[in-house]
Amino acid sequence: MSRLVLLGPPGAGKGTQAKLLSERLGVPAISTGDIFRANVARGTELGRTAQRYMDAGEYVPDAVTNAMVRDRLAQPDAAEGFILDGYPRTTDQVRELDEMLAGSGAKLDRVLEITADPEELVRRLTRRAGIEGRSDDTEDVVRTRQQVYLEQTAPLVSTYAERGLLRSVDGLGEVPAVTARLLDALASDAG
């Protein structure tokens, strides 16, 4: 079984890698950002709430995010495993995820941290904004998101390292090379 969390700063390639790992491992990639953006596009109440936070570069409140993730992990396609991209982001969410998994008798298998130079990430995300027209990828918002990541999410690296679950992988370079490094980090545990 593959119950994985992908950590890394905004723009490190978590979404791209989650999709590729999902195909390779045969488990769903669950992205809170994709779910939020889908709700924004459909104009739902969650979408309108999420949009206000996303446009400011802030995290959507835990109560909304936790409920959404709990519901998603309860779906049949996630029973044998999943790749979480964008969750957990805070130590409170780590505790919530632990409780969700314990309730079904499951636990995380691995946490993969994708690392990258912050200035390169700013360049990546502002370039993506121009291509995809994303309102949450202006330079100021990107820098705010990086700061929020450092304050709220980076401590998760220590938490998962202490549990022996963390593997860090360089996220710079061509997409296939990063994917290979992630798969190597998973395979090193299987031996």
Score class of each variant (00 low, 15 high):
residue 1 M to L: 15
residue 3 R to H: 14
residue 4 L to P: 06
residue 5 V to Y: 12
residue 5 V to E: 04
residue 6 L to F: 09
residue 9 P to G: 15
residue 10 P to I: 08
residue 11 G to W: 09
residue 12 A to V: 14
residue 18 A to L: 06
residue 20 L to V: 05
residue 22 S to W: 07
residue 24 R to M: 09
residue 25 L to P: 02
residue 26 G to Q: 02
residue 26 G to V: 00
residue 28 P to K: 03
residue 30 I to A: 02
residue 35 I to M: 15
residue 38 A to G: 14
residue 39 N to K: 05
residue 39 N to Y: 03
residue 41 A to F: 03
residue 42 R to G: 07
residue 42 R to Q: 14
residue 44 T to W: 11
residue 45 E to L: 06
residue 47 G to A: 03
residue 48 R to V: 12
residue 48 R to E: 11
residue 53 Y to K: 06
residue 53 Y to N: 10
residue 55 D to Q: 13
residue 56 A to T: 14
residue 56 A to E: 15
residue 57 G to D: 06
residue 58 E to N: 09
residue 61 P to N: 11
residue 61 P to T: 08
residue 61 P to M: 11
residue 67 A to T: 15
residue 71 D to K: 12
residue 73 L to G: 01
residue 74 A to F: 04
residue 75 Q to I: 01
residue 75 Q to G: 07
residue 83 I to D: 08
residue 86 G to L: 00
residue 89 R to C: 00
residue 89 R to H: 00
residue 89 R to Y: 01
residue 91 T to P: 07
residue 93 Q to H: 03
residue 96 E to H: 09
residue 97 L to K: 12
residue 97 L to F: 07
residue 97 L to I: 13
residue 97 L to N: 10
residue 99 E to K: 12
residue 99 E to Q: 14
residue 107 K to Q: 15
residue 107 K to F: 08
residue 108 L to A: 01
residue 108 L to V: 00
residue 110 R to I: 05
residue 111 V to E: 04
residue 112 L to G: 01
residue 112 L to I: 14
residue 112 L to H: 04
residue 113 E to R: 10
residue 116 A to I: 10
residue 118 P to H: 09
residue 120 E to P: 05
residue 120 E to N: 07
residue 120 E to R: 07
residue 121 L to S: 10
residue 121 L to I: 10
residue 122 V to T: 14
residue 122 V to H: 15
residue 126 T to Q: 06
residue 127 R to W: 08
residue 127 R to S: 15
residue 128 R to H: 00
residue 129 A to G: 13
residue 129 A to M: 04
residue 130 G to L: 14
residue 131 I to G: 03
residue 132 E to C: 05
residue 133 G to H: 00
residue 140 D to F: 00
residue 149 Y to I: 02
residue 149 Y to H: 05
residue 150 L to N: 07
residue 153 T to D: 13
residue 154 A to S: 13
residue 158 S to A: 15
residue 158 S to V: 15
residue 159 T to M: 04
residue 160 Y to G: 02
residue 162 E to F: 06
residue 164 G to H: 13
residue 165 L to V: 03
residue 166 L to Q: 10
residue 166 L to A: 11
residue 168 S to W: 02
residue 168 S to H: 06
residue 168 S to C: 04
residue 169 V to C: 11
residue 173 G to L: 04
residue 176 P to D: 03
residue 178 V to A: 08
residue 180 A to P: 02
residue 180 A to D: 13
residue 181 R to G: 03
residue 183 L to P: 07
residue 183 L to N: 09
residue 184 D to Y: 05
residue 184 D to L: 13
residue 184 D to T: 13
residue 185 A to R: 08
residue 186 L to G: 12
residue 188 S to A: 13
